[in-house]
Simulated assay, not measured.
Amino acid sequence: MSKNLFFGGLIVAASGLLSPPLALVAGLTYGFTFEHPYHLDARKLSRLLLQVSVVGLGFGMNLQQVLRVGRSGLIYTAAGITFAMLLGWGLGKLLAVKSRVSFLISAGTAICGGSAIAAVAPVTHATDEEIAVSLGTVFALNSVALLAFPAIGAALHLTQTQFGLWSALAIHDTSSVVGAAAKYGVVALAVGTTVKLARALWIVPMSVGTALIEKKKAKIQWPWFILFFCLASVANTYVPVFQNAYPVLRHLGILGLTVTLFLIGTGISKRTLREVGARPLLQGIMLWVVVATGSLALIRAGWIHL
Rank of each mutant, 00 (worst) to 15 (best):
Arg71Ile: 14
Arg71Gln: 15
Arg71Glu: 15
Arg71Met: 14
Ser72Met: 08
Ser72Glu: 14
Ser72Thr: 13
Gly73Arg: 02
Gly73Thr: 13
Gly73Asp: 13
Leu74Ile: 14
Leu74Val: 15
Leu74Glu: 01
Tyr76Cys: 12
Thr77Trp: 04
Thr77Phe: 04
Thr77Met: 14
Thr77Gly: 12
Ala78Met: 08
Ala78Pro: 08
Ala78Thr: 13
Ala79Asp: 07
Ala79Val: 09
Gly80Ala: 09
Gly80Tyr: 09
Thr82Lys: 04
Thr82Arg: 04
Phe83Ala: 14
Phe83Val: 09
Phe83Gly: 08
Ala84Thr: 14
Ala84Ser: 15
Met85Trp: 13
Met85Arg: 13
Met85Asp: 13
Met85His: 14
Met85Glu: 13
Leu86Trp: 11
Leu86Pro: 04
Leu86Glu: 05
Leu86Met: 13
Leu87Gln: 04
Leu87Ile: 10
Leu87Tyr: 09
Gly88Ile: 02
Gly88His: 06
Trp89His: 08
Gly90His: 08
Leu91Val: 10
Leu91Glu: 04
Gly92His: 10
Gly92Tyr: 11
Lys93Pro: 03
Lys93Phe: 07
Leu94Glu: 09
Leu94Ser: 12
Ala96Pro: 00
Val97Pro: 01
Val97Trp: 07
Val97Arg: 10
Val97Met: 12
Lys98Leu: 07
Ser99Gly: 13
Arg100Asp: 11
Arg100Leu: 09
Val101Ile: 15
Val101Ser: 11
Phe103Gln: 10
Phe103Cys: 14
Leu104Gly: 05
Leu104Thr: 05
Ile105Lys: 01
Ala107Trp: 01
Thr109Tyr: 00
Ile111Cys: 03
Ile111Glu: 05
Gly113Glu: 00
Gly114Ile: 11
Ser115Pro: 01
Ser115Asp: 00
Ser115Ala: 13
Ser115Arg: 02
Ser115Ile: 00
Ser115Tyr: 00
Ser115Met: 01
Ala116Gln: 07
Ala116Thr: 07
Ala116Val: 02
Ile117Glu: 03
Ala118Pro: 15
Ala118Phe: 13
Pro122Asp: 11
Pro122Gln: 11
Pro122Ala: 15
Val123Arg: 04
Val123Gln: 00
Val123Asn: 01
Thr124Gln: 12
Thr124Asn: 11
His125Ile: 02
Ala126Cys: 09
Ala126Glu: 14
Thr127Phe: 10
Thr127Val: 03
Asp128Trp: 03
Asp128Arg: 11
Asp128Ser: 15
Asp128Gln: 15
Glu129Trp: 05
Glu129Arg: 15
Glu129Ala: 14
Glu130Thr: 09
Glu130Pro: 05
Ile131Gly: 03
Ile131Leu: 15
Ala132Val: 10
Ala132Pro: 05
Val133Tyr: 14
Val133Ala: 15
Val133Asp: 08
Val133Gly: 10
Val133Phe: 14
Leu135Ala: 00
Thr137Pro: 02
Thr137Trp: 00
Val138Asn: 01
Val138Glu: 00
Phe139Leu: 07
Phe139Thr: 07
Leu141Asp: 02
Leu141Thr: 05
Asn142Arg: 03
Ser143Asn: 08
Val144Arg: 04
Val144Glu: 12
Val144His: 06
Ala145Asn: 03
Ala145Ser: 12
Ala145Phe: 06
Ala145Val: 00
Leu146Asp: 01
Leu147Ala: 14
Ala148Asn: 06
Ala148Gly: 07
Phe149Asp: 03
Phe149Asn: 02
Phe149His: 02
